[in-house]
């Protein structure tokens, strides 16, 4: 049988990379089953979430959450929803209002479910207010206008920007800054990191966003998979170094001079 029909040749490297990730994940789960517990370094931005919610509670002001303009298929949005679950649990416990205007109807539906379930788990189902977690518009700057306006009116004590952001990042973060809120941001949008670093108190960079949910919940399975990610990263760095050395040797024909 011709392999190419069943598995196109150009996809073999992707398959190998995928199998490596799967193997690393399997490895950590086997270790966990043997009783190993996993720890990751503290993420200051993630730890500051509780402090920010506490501050909002003391001041009697709401917490503002946004996942930007990402759709549900973005891993950053799913990671943001994991963080949202933790935030909603804490705000429900403390009785602090949580506002989450949304840019995508699917994300809004899932977010309502997440917040409602977290409120129930916290023993305060009444803390979930559907009118506070809602879809606004798909339009990027229509959403930005609404979210900024809402911030101006609510004057939140804590603003959390978790997810995929584009041009709206600085407008939102500067509006939050003007309200004097504690601002925490986490995004996989590399270009927006520069804006968040300037305007926010804490910024989680790139993959730290994916680790934030696990770091907050302390879920061993999630933490284990983050450890597996680190193993893979070490392997990638090693491959890059080997590749760079080989490329240098080839480019300058160093092998013949040895």
């Amino acid at each position: 049988m011709n392999t190419l029909i069943w598995l196109p040749a150009e996809k073999i490297p992707v398959l190998i990379a995928f199998l490596c990730v799967a193997a690393a994940l399997l490895g950590v789960f086997l270790l966990k089953r043997k009783g190993k517990s996993f720890k990751i370094r503290a993420l200051p931005g993630a730890s500051a979430i509780e402090e920010a919610i506490g501050r909002a509670t003391e001041m009697g002001k709401p917490v503002f959450f946004t996942s930007g303009t990402g759709e549900i298929d973005r891993m950053a949005t799913l990671a943001a929803l994991s963080v949202l679950g933790e935030v909603a649990y804490k705000t429900a416990q403390y009785g602090t209002p949580l506002f989450y205007p949304n840019n995508d109807p699917v994300v809004a539906t899932v977010a309502q479910e997440v917040v409602s379930e977290a409120a129930s788990k916290a023993g305060h189902p009444e803390a979930y207010k559907p009118e506070n977690v809602f879809f606004v518009t798909k339009s990027q700057f229509g959403y930005t206008a609404h979210a900024s306006g809402l911030m101006e009116r609510l004057k939140p004590a804590a603003t959390l920007y978790f997810g995929t952001f584009e041009g709206e990042s600085l407008i939102l973060a500067e509006t939050g800054f003007a309200q004097g809120a504690i601002q925490i941001a986490a995004t996989d949008s590399t270009i927006q990191l520069a804006f968040f670093l300037v305007a926010c108190d804490y910024t989680l960079i790139g993959e730290e966003l994916f680790a934030a949910g696990g770091s907050l919940s302390g879920d061993q399975e999630v933490l284990g998979s983050i450890v597996a990610q680190d193993w893979l990263k070490a392997a990638v760095i090693l491959l890059l170094l080997v590749g760079a050395i080989l490329a240098t040797f080839t480019t300058f024909n160093l092998a013949s001079r040895l």
Binding site: L81, S82, G85, V110, V114, K121, G213, S217, E221
Partner: peptide, 8 residues
Amino acid sequence: IERGFFGR
């Protein structure tokens, strides 16, 4: 494993 998106 990641169940955060459909509830804590």
